[in-house]
């Protein structure tokens, strides 16, 4: 039975720039409606509300008082807990930007709030909806490379600006920002949980007062091991922003996944830039469509809050290991 009414979803804050892409994806979904935008930054919020032709709220609680079924949270990382817990207590389904939270305690509270208030909590892992990642997952399940033995992951990017560089709002630098995408993808590929982490990291490149390089070595319960390079390693004239590569070594073969591999090179003499423009789509559309369906049907999401918490555990252990230079056992957030 088709629903006559469109599912209503609000966006809380554009502090994280992904909010724009998510709002755009949401507007293109037939069965969904952008129900409103809340942003403490009034100028930004009103601008976005005008662009998407929707209601603006200065206080996100006012958006939570509407009949929206769900909200997408793109605040700074630190605020994820407060907003997600408030949204859950108002009975809204929640899609929260990654990283899921900045601490184990915050992650625990968020998952607990979702359980208590019977709402669906989803973490923004667009890589789960990237067509190359999906194809890699299919090939792995089909057994085309046999059993996974180990993986090498690279998630390089350019250094972000603003609150990303303020640990009190971001929870940390490159490790917090870039470990979780691949930590989630690898956990999804192996179907196993993380056991231990060894990390070397530091503020090495950009001189912005926050760690910008990290090599995160991980081991899974099932014996698979991997490295995740979470460095903001690209300089400003690098031809592409996102780089998400995974080399997956199996018993029968090797799979090299490049989530943003489909590019065409543009040489722009006016702007003085060379750009590798991605033509294959990012995964955002699929992720927002999934959240719309979650809000509409109440189904369990692909990439849940628990998945977000599991990926966060790796980043937290990486910080610990960076300090001790020792192998760190992953502390599992009690999600029962």
């Amino acid at each position: 039975m088709l629903r006559s009414r469109k599912v209503k979803i609000g966006v809380i804050s554009f502090e994280h720039m992904h909010g724009l892409s998510y709002a755009r994806a949401l507007s293109s979904i037939e069965g969904a409606e952008l129900a409103g935008i809340a942003d403490a930054d009034e100028d930004r919020g009103r601008r976005m509300a005008a662009v998407f032709n929707t209601e603006y709220y200065r206080d996100y609680h006012d958006l939570l008082d509407t009949e929206a079924e769900g909200v997408i949270i793109c605040t700074n990382n630190k605020q994820h807990r407060e907003v997600a817990v408030a949204a859950a207590s108002c009975g809204k389904h929640v899609l929260v930007e990654k990283p899921f939270a900045v601490s184990a305690a915050d992650a625990y509270e968020m998952v607990k709030a979702a359980t208590v208030h019977h709402i669906r909590l989803m973490n923004a892992f667009p890589m789960r909806f990237n067509q190359n990642v999906l194809e890699a997952k299919r090939l792995i399940e089909e057994g085309s490379i046999g059993e996974i033995l180990c993986m090498t992951g690279i998630n390089h990017g350019k250094i972000p600006s603003g609150w990303f560089l303020d640990p009190s709002l971001s929870g940390g630098g490159a490790i917090m920002d870039h470990t979780v995408h691949l930590a989630d993808v690898m956990r999804w590929f192996t179907g196993s949980e993380y056991r231990s982490v060894y990390c070397e990291s530091g503020e090495l490149i950009h001189n912005k007062g926050i760690e910008d390089c990290g090599i995160v070595n991980v081991q899974f319960e099932n014996g698979v091991f991997a490295t995740i390079d979470c460095s903001w390693a690209h300089h400003r004239n690098y031809p592409i922003w996102p780089q998400v590569d995974v080399e997956i070594v199996g018993t029968k073969g090797v799979l090299n996944l490049k989530a943003f591999g489909q590019v065409e090179r543009i040489y722009d003499t006016e702007a003085g830039i060379i750009e590798d423009a991605v033509w294959s789509g990012s995964g955002d559309e699929g992720m927002i469509a999934e959240f719309a369906e979650v809000c509409s049907t109440g189904k369990a999401p692909v990439a849940s809050g628990e998945d977000g918490a599991k990926a966060l555990e790796v980043a937290l252990a990486a910080y610990e290991s960076s300090r001790t230079h020792r192998l760190q056992t992953v502390r599992h957030i009690c999600l029962a």
């Binding site: 090495l204 490149i205 950009h206 001189n207 390089c213 460095s231 390693a233 690209h234 300089h235």
Partner: peptide, 9 residues
């Protein structure tokens, strides 16, 4: 190989 420096790569 990839060598990332403080002002280029």
């Amino acid at each position: 190989f990839e060598v990332v420096g403080t002002s280029g790569q």
